[in-house]
């Protein structure tokens, strides 16, 4: 099994590289390099606490790629837009803090949007990422994501505390809807 995944959908030519890391130790370092704008860290780093399923992530990627195509992105880069679309918040900085990498998040999804020409060199981006992130690469699948979900945190951040279910499918439907309706 490959240790990374390439997301694509029929409507867009851009693809997205997805790698899931477990037990990341240098998250403070990554965060500070991100803030410095270091190009080697030009990825979207998503905190797994708030992620229930792959569909939730894919839905945000779709939304970000669509808004990018229509020229309607709200944040500075496409990578911050992905994190912004995952969050239900209106404030971009707050979204990045809660849904992006933070000092407490040790399980992280790294995402990178790649154009057609970049996709040929995908190995470079994967290798670079593995050097920068000190954690073990695990397969991006439902079983691993479920291990990392922090339901209390997720419900708090999505303001779903009145919903008792921890059923991944039920939550996914709600979260997908929230992402798609973002900004309306």
């Amino acid at each position: 099994m490959a240790d990374y995944e390439i997301f694509s959908c029929p409507q867009f030519s851009n693809k997205v590289l997805i790698i899931l890391f477990e037990g990341v130790q240098n998250n403070a370092e990554i965060k500070s390099e991100l803030l410095k704008g270091n190009r080697d860290y030009d990825y979207a780093f998503v905190n797994c606490d708030n992620i229930a399923s792959q569909e939730q992530v894919y839905s945000a990627l779709y939304k970000a790629l669509l808004d990018d195509l229509l020229g309607q992105t709200k944040s500075k880069t496409l990578h911050s837009e992905i994190i912004f679309d995952l969050s239900p918040l209106k404030n971009i900085v707050e979204s990045l803090n809660k849904f992006g990498i933070s000092s407490t998040s040790t399980n992280i999804i790294a995402l990178k949007v790649l154009s057609d020409s970049q996709i040929d060199n995908v190995a470079t981006y994967v290798d670079n990422l593995k050097q920068r992130v000190k954690g073990s690469v695990v397969h991006f699948d439902q079983a691993n994501l479920s291990r990392f979900t922090n339901f209390a945190q997720l419900k708090k951040n999505y303001k779903l505390t009145n919903i008792s279910t921890e059923d991944v499918e039920e939550l996914t439907r709600i979260l997908v809807g929230l992402t798609q309706l973002k900004g309306t």
Binding site: S59, Y62, K63, L66, L70, Q72, R173, I174, V176, G177, L178, Q180, L181, T184
Partner: peptide
């Protein structure tokens, strides 16, 4: 478009049987 999509989400939260929202492109 947005108001129809929002209503579908509302119905999902209320537990009313209706189609589920998968994606939306309000501009188009």
């Amino acid at each position: 478009t947005a108001s129809e999509a929002k209503l579908l989400q509302k119905l999902l939260l209320l537990g009313v049987d209706a189609p589920r929202l998968l994606a939306m492109d309000g501009t188009n």
